[in-house]
Design a protein around this nucleic acid. Structure first.
Lengths: 180, 180
DNA sequence: GCACCTTCTGCAACTAGTTGCAGAAGAATC
DNA sequence: GATTCTTCTGCAACTAGTTGCAGAAGGTGC
């Protein structure tokens, strides 16, 4: 049940329409909580119904008409409350690891190529994060608590990609010599 | 669509009944692809229907009667095929990171405690993995390809937990001094 | 001014995963 | 030998997330 809170956070950062939110999810919040436009529209409806957000008055409300939403006090309160709640980390789910385990039973044909492909993807994601870090978090932007929090989140992304790059590199090195 | 393949792998490792599978998922395959008993029973039904597995003949087939399943050649073929398929890593989804980002907007009350709680949980999981590694993968068990593959998977779990432990430790250090 | 394209919103149907519960089999207890 | 507890299987209903599609608004080109 994190999607509504992801949306509230995004809307607090900047009031937006459904499509704008979708775009911002694709390149910011979505890096650690992705969502399709469909989920977002549906959730916006629910949040409005619940009185947590409201649509800014539009000249002509109609279907296909852009609607900007902003967070109401009740929504901010709900978000603050949610931040204080506890929630266990959900267990890892990696189909790549599963594939390796399956490969141990039925042979690892094609697996090496897939590991290499993932390595490239993770390197790319790492580059993307590092570019964002360089652009948005120069040393002087790490003073206030909100900035430090946002930077830590990004750091999580960076370090996680680094972890995968290293693990995949090691895995390829260990499997490589045995190939024939 | 990885669950059927997780089940096929587990059944190849050892033919089992639904409940045995559930237990093994709780402490082995489930570390990187978890599933509830419900999912497993339903999927066993589908796999049987598809001719990928079969129930070993039981004396008295009836509801509430234990049923052992084994993989048929068609199931093994399907699994081998699946291992060779490509699949993009799915994007990270972490409600803890989301909480931190939300905390940047509405204040970080209670966040520190939650980070500490997660740190403990990840340390515990790390210990668990290390114990499994010590027990199941002594140096001489890392020679054959299947053993190396299985060990690499476990290493992934170990390193991932280490990553979280380090990241959480760093985050607490960075947030700590600012608390008052 | 009409044909076409893009942008934006949203319905509907589907797939995957979760939760709650219930019934049969067998073992344990009295 | 009846009662109760545990084990095992499974149905049904629900929640979350995905995919396909369609309609309105508004711009662009001729």
């Amino acid at each position: 049940m994190s999607l509504p809170h992801a949306i509230l956070t995004a809307l607090l950062e900047k009031p937006s329409s459904g499509l704008e939110l979708t775009r911002r999810f694709d390149k910011s919040i979505g890096y650690f909580w992705s969502a399709t436009h469909q989920q977002i529209y549906r959730e916006l409806g629910k949040l409005e119904q619940a009185g947590h957000i409201r649509a800014l008055p539009a000249p002509v409300p109609a279907r296909g008409q852009k609607k900007e939403y902003e967070v109401l006090p009740a929504g901010r309160a709900e978000l603050g409350d949610w931040v204080g709640r506890t929630e266990d980390p959900k267990p890892l789910r990696s189909s790549l690891l599963l594939r390796m385990r399956a490969a141990a039973m039925v042979g690892s044909a094609g697996l090496r190529a897939e590991l290499e492909r993932h390595l490239v993807l993770h390197r790319q994601q790492l580059e993307k994060y590092l570019a964002i870090e360089a652009r948005d978090f120069p040393a002087e932007r790490r003073r206030t608590e909100p900035d430090r929090l946002r930077h830590l989140v990004l750091r999580g992304g960076v370090d996680l990609e680094r972890f995968w790059v290293e693990w995949l590199t090691g895995a390829l090195a260990e499997l490589g010599p045995a190939e024939h």
